[in-house]
């Protein structure tokens, strides 16, 4: 296959056709010129951490996500313990994030925690626990950067995904997050907003088609108790 030949043919065609268009461009522009000058990104008021959290919670819940807020890692472990019991999870996929490791370290139970599971073993897991690098309040979205944590599959394959988040990771808008993640672009960045869903059959919503059917976020906010 001669790829460079195809490439130059495509580029030649692009240039030729763009040139052919020139005589018509002005007349068309008169009718259709985008009014670009009017575009401004709306300036949003700086939100306090408390408001950001509240915003995030509201939007996460609106897409069916489950939200709890805790004071510290050990409290997170308590909640996690309860959940694992409730789901009767026996095999749990975990990411390699220090935060997740620390919390899992608190758990005294006989479930199996598997880090860096092979594909086969992943498919047997009942639950996955990961962290996230950022969260977007305006959409209730988790942002996972592959360079920071090994969470691509643990957040995807098991039927339940538990994500541990810290209050300082929340930003208000998608735009802010794009700017942040671009600074050192991970090979894979995943945005997660709610549980896996489909409307492919008669536009009826069904949850958990390929990814997790449940998304649970445990947020650690160390200022919580102090304020209480």
């Amino acid at each position: 296959m001669n790829n460079s030949e195809a490439k130059s043919a495509i580029f030649a065609s692009i240039r030729q056709n763009l040139a052919a268009s020139l005589p018509f461009d002005a007349a068309h522009h008169a009718h259709h010129a985008p009014k670009d000058s009017t575009f401004t990104t709306p300036v949003l008021p700086e939100l306090s951490t408390e408001n950001l959290i509240e915003n995030f919670r509201k939007n996460l819940e609106s897409v069916g996500g489950n939200f709890s807020i805790v004071y510290d890692e050990s409290e997170a472990a308590e909640i996690l313990l309860m959940m694992i019991g409730e789901k009767k999870a026996r095999k749990i996929a975990v990411s390699d994030s220090p935060l997740v490791e620390k919390i899992v370290g608190f758990l005294k139970m006989d479930a199996e925690f598997i880090e860096n599971a092979s594909a086969d073993r992943l498919f047997e897991c009942d639950l996955g626990i990961t962290g996230a690098q950022w969260a977007i309040a305006e959409t209730g979205t988790l942002v996972l950067e592959s360079e920071s944590e090994r969470h691509r599959l643990a957040s995807l394959v098991p039927p339940v995904h538990v994500c541990i988040l810290e209050a300082g990771q929340i930003r208000q808008t998608l735009g802010e997050i794009l700017e942040l993640v671009q600074q050192s672009l991970s090979r894979t960045i995943t945005f997660i907003t709610g549980a896996s869903r489909t409307s492919d059959i008669e536009l009826t919503l069904a949850i958990g088609v390929h990814g997790p059917g449940e998304l649970i976020v445990i947020l650690i906010d160390k200022t919580e108790e102090a304020e209480n």
Binding site: T139, T141, R187, T188, I189, T190, T193
Partner: peptide
């Protein structure tokens, strides 16, 4: 398209993984 503020997942993929042991 679907009347969602954001679809459930977005995958942003830039090239391949850096280390053989990475996921993907």
């Amino acid at each position: 398209g679907t009347g969602q503020r954001l679809t459930t997942y977005q995958s942003l993929i830039t090239g391949t993984k850096r280390n053989a042991t990475d996921e993907g």
